[in-house]
């Protein structure tokens, strides 16, 4: 599936309801989320723990654990919910995971080339690809010998996050969902990772959904819009100034409202 670059794309999430099966029965997590993201835009989704931020991320990527009970996700009008997990990636969606999985037996080199081939529909030219990978790794301060190691195996938390962003830069998605990419990063790693996101944003006109609990990463990645997530819904949205207000006052006023509403 070849994609054309530099065209405007839109990712629409319409009145999305998502539940999961637990030991105590079905639990509703998302209770009507609507968001529209265009190419080149950066949307920050902020909210307290348990508000459904990560569920939104996993649902966009198609994790089997999450069941969409109603609503839509559309990528340039195409029904994302009808797509298999791999088809979503091939269509241009990328999820940088909060907890990247260790995959036994598969080297980074092999993995990156296989994924790139699957996303682009044909294999990258070996020489230019090798160079591209090397340069991208260097920019993210990932040691060259990681290429020979198994995917995420034995990587530290920070290393795993850098490798997620490495993929983001190499695969060049239309839209990226960053699920708490900032968690567990020290200040240097946070800067390196943020620079990677900003490069992908600038070079590929990538649309970004930046999920975070803290405002810290917003010092490095400047959002165009901020959405506050509470109890499975967008409780408030605004510009970057909303993040400043959260920094000053926390989530308390939203939680109080939710409690009353609940």
């Amino acid at each position: 599936m070849k994609r054309t670059r530099n065209t405007m794309s839109t990712l629409e999430i319409k009145d999305l309801h998502v539940s999961i099966e637990t030991d105590q029965g079905t639990k509703d997590i998302l209770k009507g989320v609507s968001l529209t993201i265009n190419s080149g835009e950066i949307h920050a989704i902020m909210g307290p723990n348990g508000s459904g931020k990560s569920t939104l991320a996993a649902t966009i990527a198609g994790h089997p654990r999450y069941e969409v009970t109603s609503g839509e996700i559309l990528l340039d009008g195409e029904d994302v919910l009808e797509m298999e997990v791999d088809e979503r990636a091939q269509a241009g969606l990328f999820l940088a995971m909060q907890y990247p999985v260790e995959v036994p037996g598969v080297t980074m080199t092999n993995f990156l080339r296989t994924a790139k081939t699957a996303i682009d529909g044909d294999a990258p030219k070996l020489r230019t690809w090798t160079k591209e990978v090397k340069e991208a790794m260097a920019k993210l301060r990932i040691d060259a010998d990681f290429a020979n190691r198994n995917v995420n195996e034995g990587f530290s938390g920070g290393e795993k996050k850098r490798v997620e962003i490495l993929q983001l830069e190499l695969f060049k998605p239309k839209f990226a969902v960053l699920d708490e990419t900032d968690s567990g990063l020290d200040i240097d790693a946070l800067r390196v990772v943020s620079e990677g996101v900003n490069r992908a944003h600038a070079e590929n006109n990538m649309g970004t959904l930046l999920i975070t609990h803290y405002t810290r990463i917003l010092n490095y990645i400047k959002p165009d819009y901020v959405h506050v997530f509470v109890d499975g819904r967008v409780a408030e949205q605004g510009g970057p100034e909303l993040a400043d207000e959260l920094e000053a006052n926390g989530y308390d006023r939203f939680l109080a409202t939710a409690a009353v509403a609940g």
Binding site: A61, D86, A89, A115, A118, I119
Partner: peptide, 19 residues
């Protein structure tokens, strides 16, 4: 494992073979 590889565009069959 499967979800991670598929979320990178790799079809299920290829993902299993890769591992």
């Amino acid at each position: 494992h499967l979800f991670y590889l598929m979320a990178r565009g790799i079809p299920e069959k290829v993902a299993r073979q890769l591992v």
